[in-house]
Amino acid sequence: MKKINGFVLRRLGTEAVIVAESLDLIAFDRLVSLNDSAVYVWESLNDSEFDSNTVVRLLTDRYDVDEATACKDAGELIDVWLRAGIIEQ
């Protein structure tokens, strides 16, 4: 999987959101909010290819979680991001 071009992390007040940006249009009509751990994953992924193992590894490296919990969280996060259309297979 990888991030779809044009989706950028922005801070709106205290919230972190993914916004679609092209050269001259910023789309605030379909904001995807991220919590702190999702922000960490999004920023760590950069523009490289990743799979659920990449996300699990990021979570277990940073947080005190067991593998099973990290797998579940990674699956949920990828599912939300796929449905939101900000990453692609």
Partner: peptide
């Protein structure tokens, strides 16, 4: 990790 949040309109 993926809860729904609302953004304050003024901030937006």
């Amino acid at each position: 990790m993926a809860e729904r949040r609302t953004i304050n309109t003024e901030v937006l």
